[in-house]
């Protein structure tokens, strides 16, 4: 599975291809995550990853998403390496018969990518570099999907 990209990718071309290969779907929902400039504080976002493991873990999270929601298809493309502000970091797209499953699947998978995908982020800027860890908001977002509710 061609999930990881080590150089810039075109999310619009990828999304176009994804939509074009659907036959039974009635809805496609998608999210494009962008590298923030943080008002000039970030010149480069460096995404460290673990070749061979990062891909497997993303595949596991995708399988979890497919198990939970009634999807026709699911797509993830994730950057690694050195990323400039404004460049896409991630594309998640879900195709389903009806829109709710597609929206929810994208939301769910993004929450899990944020906290469980094997990437390590470092922001480099004029004031130096700092490693980014998941925010408590990211962990809280993921907790929305656990507990009693079953979709």
């Amino acid at each position: 599975m061609d999930v990881l990209r080590l150089s810039a990718f075109d999310p619009y071309a990828e999304l176009k291809d994804f939509v074009a290969r659907q036959s039974g779907a009635g809805a496609v929902a998608s999210l494009i995550g962008l590298c923030r400039a943080e008002s000039g504080r970030v010149k480069t976002l460096v995404l460290d990853h673990f070749p061979g493991f990062t891909e497997t873990e993303i595949a596991r999270l995708m399988a979890q998403t497919r198990d939970r929601f009634a999807l026709e298809d699911l797509c993830v493309i994730h950057r690694a390496g050195r990323i400039a502000p404004g460049e896409p970091i991630v594309l998640v797209a879900a195709a389903a018969t009806h829109r709710r499953a597609a929206f929810d699947a994208v939301d769910f998978l993004m929450d899990y990518l944020k906290t469980e995908a094997p990437f390590w982020k470092k922001e480099e800027g004029p004031d130096g570099a700092r490693w980014i860890e998941p925010r408590s908001q990211d962990l809280e977002n993921k907790l929305r999907w656990t507990g009693d509710r079953e979709d």
Partner: peptide, 10 residues
Amino acid sequence: VAFMPPMSGG
């Protein structure tokens, strides 16, 4: 054996 700090993708 790999040791990894908290992960953060997306």
